[in-house]
């Protein structure tokens, strides 16, 4: 479990990082390393080079304004989770983050890194999708914003080009009076969820996002669906799969149960925050 040889770059400016990345199409960006380093150690990923962005202090930011929570590429999960302004502006981010792995992993892992890793079993890609957020990416060619709906192409596959670095993510703030909820079932505390559900209830509009029951983060509009039928309605748009921890039928059951529970909590949460 030792990585294959790779070159290591630790740029001190974003421009330098982008130039380094552009010069080597097989290089990978290293931020928190909580997904990448195990892949390297198991030799499942064998990049030619790592571009370590941990020296780019400019990316270690958390900004909250009237419309968005903007999380920089070096903001650790733990910092985002502990940030009271983030919690006030978009409580769903904090709710979901408390389910992301364990404290030691959250201390190192970055929220933006988790987004571009594009794992549909991870919490934050679903939250970004549900909230209609976006990721800002930079390359030597310039910057662009990728809406969440266009970010996740397939399992562990994002729409970032090989020369692009995600520099920040925007999570829209919660509209006044809207309610949110998050719940998941995992085999062990902090494991990837067997199924997780996030929900936003804004006025009569109800939308739910799903973790671990589809190939890409999936959001289902449940507006107007009565309680008791929401689980089945959600299930119609999801494809729970079997793995060694749960059958597809059991995951479907979790979709039913959690959808009802979480949507109901979000509805109850309306107007309280």
């Amino acid at each position: 479990m030792k990585p294959a040889p790779f070159a290591y770059h630790r740029p001190s400016t974003l421009d330098e990082a982008l130039a380094t990345l552009a010069a080597d199409p097989h290089a990978k960006v290293l931020a928190g390393g909580q997904s990448l380093v195990p892949l390297l150690s198991m030799r499942l990923a064998q990049p030619s080079a790592l571009v370590d962005i941990n020296g780019l202090a400019e990316l270690d930011t958390i900004l909250v304004d009237q419309s968005v929570v903007r999380i920089g590429a070096l903001a650790r999960h733990a910092d985002v989770l502990a940030n009271p302004a983030v919690r006030r502006a978009q409580p769903l981010v904090a709710l979901a983050l408390s389910h992301v792995a364990h404290a030691t992993i959250r201390n190192r892992g970055t929220t933006v890194g988790s987004l571009v890793h594009a794992d549909a079993a991870a919490e934050m890609p679903v939250v970004l999708t549900l909230l209609g957020g976006s990721v800002r990416v930079a390359s030597v060619r310039g910057q662009r914003d990728i809406p969440a709906a266009e970010l996740f192409l397939g399992p562990l596959e994002s729409s970032l080009a090989p020369d692009e670095i995600a520099v920040s993510a925007d999570f829209p703030v919660l509209p006044t009076g809207a309610g949110v909820a998050f719940e998941e079932v995992a085999r062990r505390h902090g494991d990837y969820a067997l199924c997780g559900v996030a929900a936003v209830a804004d006025g009569d509009t109800i939308r739910a996002g799903f973790v671990s029951v589809s190939d890409v983060p999936t959001v289902v509009d449940l507006t107007g669906v009565p309680a008791g039928e929401r689980g089945e309605a959600a299930l119609a748009q999801l494809e729970p799969q079997a793995d060694i921890h749960a059958t597809a039928a059991y995951r479907s059951q979790l979709v039913r149960v959690l959808t009802e529970r979480v949507v109901e909590s979000a509805v109850q949460d309306r107007g309280v925050a």
Binding site: V185, R187, L194, H245, A246, T247, A249, Y250, Q253
Partner: peptide
């Protein structure tokens, strides 16, 4: 026994 198995 896992929750999945108990469910079944």
């Amino acid at each position: 026994i896992s929750p999945s198995e108990l469910f079944h």
